[in-house]
Nucleic acid binder design. Sequence first.
DNA 1: TCTCCATACC
DNA 2: CAGGTATGGAGAC
Length: 410
Amino acid sequence: MQNFGPKYVYENIEKPLLPILTEMERRGVLVDTNQLGQLSQEFATRMATHENRIFELAGEQFNVNSPKQLGEILFDKLKLDLGKKKKRSTNVEVMELLAEQGHDIANEVLAYRSVAKLRSTYTEALSQQVNPKTGRVHTSYNAVGAATGRMSSSDPNLQNIPIRTEDGRKIRHAFIAPQGWQLMSADYSQIELRLLAHFSKSKGLQEAFLQGVDVHAFTASRVFNVELPDVTSDQRRIAKAVNFGLVYGMGATSLAKQIGTTRVEAQEYIGRYFTRYDGVKDYMEANKQFCRDHGYVETLFGRRIHLPTIHSNNGGLRAGAERAAINAPLQGSNADIIKLAMPKIEQALQQGGYKTRMLMQVHDELVFEVPQEEVKKVQPLITNLMENAVKLEVPLKVEAGLGTNWEDAH
DNA sequence: TCTCCATACC
DNA sequence: CAGGTATGGAGAC
């Protein structure tokens, strides 16, 4: 076993990865430009409909894409107001509050915005970046695009292709496999929470993963003191927000906002979480202290994330660094693990004589083009390599899906 | 060309 | 917006 540290990360993780990223960029991903073109038209029509309704409700025409002009319409002309607390922002949060108060114009703005984003960034911009000869888009990966060790992707960014909404999934549907091939998506399930269970040595959290149960439901059963089968969907929703938020170093205020309750109640959930998952609180405090002592935090393999503002006199900056000190080792270790798995997979595919090709990496997911006849062999091969890339105190789980397009592969 | 705002993803 | 990103449009310069 070698000594982990920055040198190890460079020699054993980053260096072997680079030629593979080059190959993935060169291969590109097949995109159905006809689908994108049709979508673009559909979105344009819907944008016009929402825009006209906005003009009617506003009593005049203006540029809806301009937050400045929109703010003048909403807050000056129509005198919409959310009390002294909120400023003149026109973001989702404010628009949703206005919509709740019965202001239809806010709903129209939200509808317009979501379609406009999908059209400008995806159906329009993406189509233009497809190589007309090959029908493929070729992204550019930055191996160390993020300070945590995550990669980034640009021109086009393939790591933020929509998936959340029905309209968004229509864009993912246009990422396709060639005739006779399938797209296979393989993603690590709950990897950051598994890493938290590993690092914190929390027996409670580890138990969820060792038992192989739904970790959010398991957390709910712990926090709400009910048997696993009796967990309600609302309890699970809250537990999921707590699990998710804790990984970000979240406080009671933001959790309260997220789950729509009071700060006091949110604090109560966090307290119960730390009681039931012994070790998690200590782990987080230890990370903050390590950061104060060294000025950086470390990932599983010793990648360093420098956080100089941990010593700032500015309380906001300091608090931000403390949250990052909790999150960065989890996010960065995830990056270490998938980056370690990628060359192993490439090598195994080559040695096995497979035509299957790795095309994309989306932080905890790898996407492949697989000839139909290789699916049965390659799916378990890749899943096993990913799951066994490292040995932790809890198992890693990979979920793989197949389809003729990226949407169906999930 | 740059910053700000808003919003897409993990 | 709670951790990490990239991008498009508006508007200032």
